[in-house]
Design a protein around this nucleic acid. Structure first.
Lengths: 159, 159
DNA sequence: TTTTCTGCAAACGATTTGCATACAC
DNA sequence: GTGTATGCAAATCGTTTGCAGAAAA
């Protein structure tokens, strides 16, 4: 559902952004970005997800390094953090063109399944809000909550 | 900014919803709902916020009970959970009319300030998504992230 | 060489849970 | 009375941090 051919970040981009801010290009930071590049289908990776995937590839990276690197890549605008209320912060690869950021998440309250939508109709609203609030808006996030086809049973009150 | 005169839930509503599901109306559950009713200005209360407020009012309620009750009131549709990425789940009082749920949150990435907006333009999009996905959508959540007037300094990369 | 980065383990903070008692129904 | 709810304390889980050694620049 999400366009898989939008331009995202490369290892060279990582190198450039790191050095601009005085950070170093380490193998661990490359490995982590590579995980996101190599798995365009698996967005929404948590620190533990990334850690397990790298360990599975013979990396001996530490979990703390994964946490630190995910936060760093987030602050560099290479990854975007997202919260689905499942108790951990997840990340997805950002796109180079900020106007291409926009997609929605549709979350099933019962099975926790997450579906993505590319479409966005909030640019006008964002402009209004920026104007009225004086905020410099850098991103927005839309989530719809409900029950997917499979989970639409009689009682929706108890998982 | 949020309409303060929209109809929200009362203790009687709580009683009704609890008994429908076989839950008991306890003084603790009443106290907690009352906190939200008594402080329409202070939305976004965390479990610890509620606990401290009640302790300040001579209640001897336990923190675990606050957590359990907030989740219960959430599952009854009386409260709505929200996440602002500050490390804890917060709740706000729901409105009786589900079409009145809609408001946005504008979050400053630097000072963590949260501003609310009533306006919503997503009904049409929600209908589209429901139709295409087969989801039964019960709520949606929109957050804009950026930097408030006070925090618009030169370097936005480090808090 | 100099400073940043890493891995480990311990610390941390929010939330959950086990259990005996207390209470709503 | 009976089963649910509470309070407490201990346990849990995701995440952060201190520190000594390793490695970019």
């Amino acid at each position: 559902m999400t366009g898989a051919d939008e331009k995202t970040f490369t290892i060279d981009d990582l190198k450039a952004r790191l050095s601009t801010k005085g950070y170093k290009l380490t193998p661990q930071r490359k490995e982590i970005l590579q995980v996101f590049i190599d798995h365009p289908d698996q967005h929404h990776l948590s620190a533990e997800d990334v850690h397990l995937m790298l360990r599975g590839e013979n990396s001996k990276i530490g979990l703390a390094t994964v946490y630190r690197s995910l936060e760093l890549l987030g602050s560099l605008g290479i990854l975007l953090p997202i919260e689905f209320g499942d108790g951990c912060t997840r990340y997805e690869l950002n796109t180079v063109d900020p106007s291409k950021h926009r997609h929605h998440h549709l979350v099933c309250l019962k099975c926790k399944k997450v579906i993505e939508f590319d479409e966005d109709r909030l640019d006008e609203l964002e402009a209004d809000i920026a104007l009225r609030s004086g905020f410099w808006i850098t991103n927005h996030e839309v989530k719809f909550f409900g029950y997917c086809k499979d989970c639409q049973t009689i009682d929706h009150n108890r998982a």
